[in-house]
Design a protein around this nucleic acid. Structure first.
Lengths: 180, 180, 180, 180
DNA sequence: GATGAATGAGTGTTCATTCAT
DNA sequence: GATGAATGAACACTCATTCAT
């Protein structure tokens, strides 16, 4: 029981190092690099995450949980959906992994987290659609796909234009006015 | 002059194989796989493209040229811009490379092609903005970024929803009506 | 601290295998061959010596250190210089690397060892020249070059004539008698 | 019969290019480089010299023939032997191949040339030994080995000290004066 | 005969994973 | 549990040699 403290700590350090490394350089960074940055041996990484894919999945799951938590905090006001999108994109600086999280590229480990996020997200979307501010014909999965695209766009914009991708997507998602 | 026939044929076969392989599985596919699919030896790939990067660049340049050619065929009607976007996205099935083409990740070999595309694209965008159908504040480079995002979105949509990403982007890019 | 045992052992085994292989067949032997002869995997060789050049450098440095050590043991008698030359040539059985060591073809790893040898060698030469038994106009660097030549000669002599090259060189290096 | 002119010319061009390339950079230069410098295709090189080893052998044989010719021109004066050694070393600028020529590393193609050189060389040496200016106990083969060493030495000396290796070797080869 | 494209085995090096300590 | 050395299958790339034209 006592030596567990180190293990927990190491797991967290590895996750942090992995989040940074994957975010900055993509998933092709060697595990050795992550191990080094986490201050642990290469074997320790594998004890916690038997496979590289498992580590990637864990990083994603971790992030999804955060996002799900944030979604739950938001109310059900019509505009909350857009606020959430903004936060999601904002937090998506390390989009290389997060965008992967938003399609099916999630290891088994992340299944639960994905489901959690899904539930929270569904509510926000439903509220916005109910209020008539978002196109009624898009599903949560489709918004995910659009979000992945927004992240890709944002990563290609110069810093001073950050937000343009989201802006366009939001404008495109808003329900058309009755006259059309 | 005559033995060139084989060389030309092989070059084309390699490019085709590379386009497919890169498109399907990303640029991490081994060159050996591409060589095999093209029905040539590994060395032949290197004779035509001394570096893997060169091969990637060539695949991209090839595609950019096609797109530039198509852009030139289009007139300067206001809506032509959207038609072109649609074609671009349509042709972007192998988005993994094309999306790379739309930011700066182009080898020197592709420089000319990129310039060609740029010119054609600029004209279409200018016409559409002149006609007041596209937001006046976006530049061609920014539309490129948005396009990359659309491709990312499209690749994550189920077949029956193909086009939704583009639809949203176009809606978002249209100039807001005066009353707003 | 404890697992180092294997590492130390492997490093030594690799160095030994490399010394033999390089000595016998020149530096063009594949690293795989060396790995195999050392009884280790290919990756292990690279862990200890990140580059082939580094391995070559280490083999050379190793040998230079031995030689420098031996030089230090010798006194400053006039004839000690010749004794040392003899030992050097004797130990130069694997001349392919040692001869490379005697000109500038040494990686950075060997710099310290080369300096060590140089110092020891300079002393011996100076003593011999001071005693008037060696031509006063040759520098240590030049003797190195001559030595490289002797090694080349020796490697081409049949076993029963071993030593002839050194003999000729020593005779040629001796200070001419006053009457001439 | 008429197209033979090109063939002869190509053979010569290849030999020249090979001599230069091997001399400058050692025998590891790619054949393609030699073909290019000779202004011929890679296949042409192989038509004339079925194997890389054959080309190396031919370059050596070529040089040996020159040397044999020069030896024949010299008379049988006692000092002619030393003059010849000097010329040999002088012409040995591209010592990388020539030194290989002086031991057994000669392909079958060079056998005849080696024999030719041997005869000429034997005479010069015999004359010098007969006149008592060269140690009587060294054979022609041994002088060859010594010569290889001298070439190795010379290649390691700075330009302004060129000749020192030969000087030392000659001094070492001279018959000791009776009193000793 | 000449050309130069094609071949394919081989090289140095990287890296996820395993395992002795 | 942690460590980091060992493993070995890949990979991109080179080059002597073959062969269609």
């Amino acid at each position: 029981m006592s030596p567990r403290a180190d293990a927990v700590r190491n797991r967290a350090r590895i996750l942090t190092a992995a989040r940074e490394a994957f975010g900055r350089d993509g998933v092709d960074v060697p595990l050795d690099t992550i191990a080094e940055r986490a201050g642990v041996g290469a074997g320790t990484v594998h004890r916690h995450f038997p496979t590289k894919e498992a580590l990637i999945g864990a990083v994603i799951a971790d992030r999804l949980d955060q996002l799900a938590g944030r979604a739950a905090e938001l109310g059900d006001q019509a505009e909350d959906f857009f606020i959430y999108l903004a936060e999601l994109v904002d937090s998506g600086r390390d989009n290389l992994v997060l965008s992967a999280a938003l399609d099916g590229t999630i290891g088994t480990e992340g299944a639960a987290s994905a489901a959690r996020l899904s539930g929270a997200f569904d509510s926000l979307l439903a509220a916005a659609q109910g209020a008539g501010v978002v196109r009624a014909d898009v599903t949560a999965a489709e918004v995910h796909a659009i979000l992945a695209g927004v992240l890709a766009t944002e990563s290609r914009l110069p810093p001073e234009r950050r937000g343009l991708g989201l802006e366009v997507a939001i404008a495109g998602l808003r329900a058309s006015p009755p006259s059309r």
